[in-house]
Design a protein around this nucleic acid. Structure first.
Lengths: 230, 230
DNA sequence: GAACTTATAGTACATTTGACTACAAGCTAC
DNA sequence: GTAGCTTGTAGTCAAATGTACTATAAGTTC
């Protein structure tokens, strides 16, 4: 049977990846240009078929890496999309994954069946095939909600960051100005930022302290009933 | 091909339903006993195969109705589970759905391949086959989070309810005692509960006022920027 | 009516939030 | 150097909110 061949795919089940980046106060998403198949030449979310030999999580990572060269990021499942007519030639249910990354760390390079891979501003995404637009909308909506209830923003800025960088990120995502002293106090009181004991360099003003997100601290706070809210 | 037959199923893709109820201060889930197949006799989440002719949402509703007689509820997608070895005889990815219902409105009656259908206390769930335990845990975790950020709890209690009933629901889900006067004040200040101008009946103590959740009020608050938090 | 149960109101204190002020530290231009 | 700029960091204060209570009211059971 198919399942005996480790390269065989489940032909009714695919993965699509929605990768968010953040550059110059703009949210970006990563698209690939199809190099073959029925949608050749079109820009679309990086996606592909799930193999019998891999879990769906593994599948998402492999597909993303094959098509764009992006690897070792934390892909999380967004949602399955399974309308009867979402795919033109046959019935295909797709499981969408998403991730937040720092674009400067992930220069996409097209691979496998993709002829190109590039970041697009969310505000300037080309027409997408299948129900990919719907997936993007669902992902954006989810991100908007998630960012207020979980400290996912840290995935979008450098490991070591200043409090102002963090504040500007939130201002951009939440779409409003925040008071500087109050933001600092609120974030610092949450107690999961670790000072790096280093300062900013190469800035033409007083250098700010650098901090990093301490996941261990955060997790232990969560276990004690803490909930992140911003 | 398979897809031409409207009864044909996608044999690598299933649905499992996680239905929560609330009775006597306890959270329940709805299980069915398999009447045939490799897990005959075992209690499991109501589940089945997705047909080529139906969307995954439709599939979830049909399967739940076939097996338990429960219909017309709002099923929401929880997550897809796709470990390679999650199903014993072949590779199957399942999409889990969940819903919150008032058990008194939904007396389960077994149907189709199920020989029985019953509510089980969450604290007293029998051993479940496949990765169904993992699905239940994921669902509970999600519910626990969701219930604090959205007023979904009202789906689990009668339309007209007392504040103590509501409080007991939250205590059951969150797993901790809440202070009565403070809970009342907080909920009432949110301003989306409408007094029914009726009182409890048939209770052997002072009758409490009945309230109902006013979805219109809630929605208009949301539009003004209000966020539910508990 | 006494004892009990649950409903509901109120109070006092601590904590958090939001708007704002003050000042320190490092750069640049003169 | 110093004036003037930018950004960092600390603090104040009143209002709102949350927390831990106490008190009392309104029924039921015996």
């Amino acid at each position: 049977m198919d399942e005996m061949n480790p390269e065989a795919v489940i032909d009714a089940l695919s993965i699509d990846c929605l990768i968010f980046g953040f550059k110059k106060r703009e949210l970006d998403i990563l698209l690939v240009q199809h190099g073959e198949g029925i949608s050749k030449g079109k820009w679309a979310l990086p996606g592909g078929w799930i193999k019998y030999s891999e879990s769906i999580d593994e599948s998402a990572n492999r597909i993303l890496n094959d098509l764009t060269g992006v690897s070792n990021i934390y892909l999380e499942q967004l949602k399955a999309f399974g309308d009867v007519q979402r795919y033109p030639t046959k019935r295909v249910v797709t499981i969408a994954y998403y991730a937040l990354v720092k674009p400067e760390n992930y220069i996409p390079r097209a691979g496998f069946t993709a002829s190109d891979a590039q970041w697009f501003k969310v505000s300037d995404v080309p027409p997408l095939p299948y129900d990919h637009h719907q997936i993007v909308v669902a992902g954006l909506q989810y991100l908007k909600h998630k960012v207020r209830h979980e400290p996912v923003g840290f995935n979008l800025i450098p490991k070591k960051f200043t409090l102002l960088q963090l504040q500007e990120l939130y201002e951009a995502i939440l779409g409003k100005k925040l008071d500087k002293p109050n933001f600092r106090r609120k974030i610092m009181k949450m107690n999961f930022l670790e000072p790096c004991k280093e300062k900013q360099t190469e800035v033409s003003h007083r250098a700010a302290n650098l901090y990093r997100f301490d996941k261990k601290k955060y997790n232990s706070l969560i276990e004690k009933g803490f909930t992140f809210e911003l």
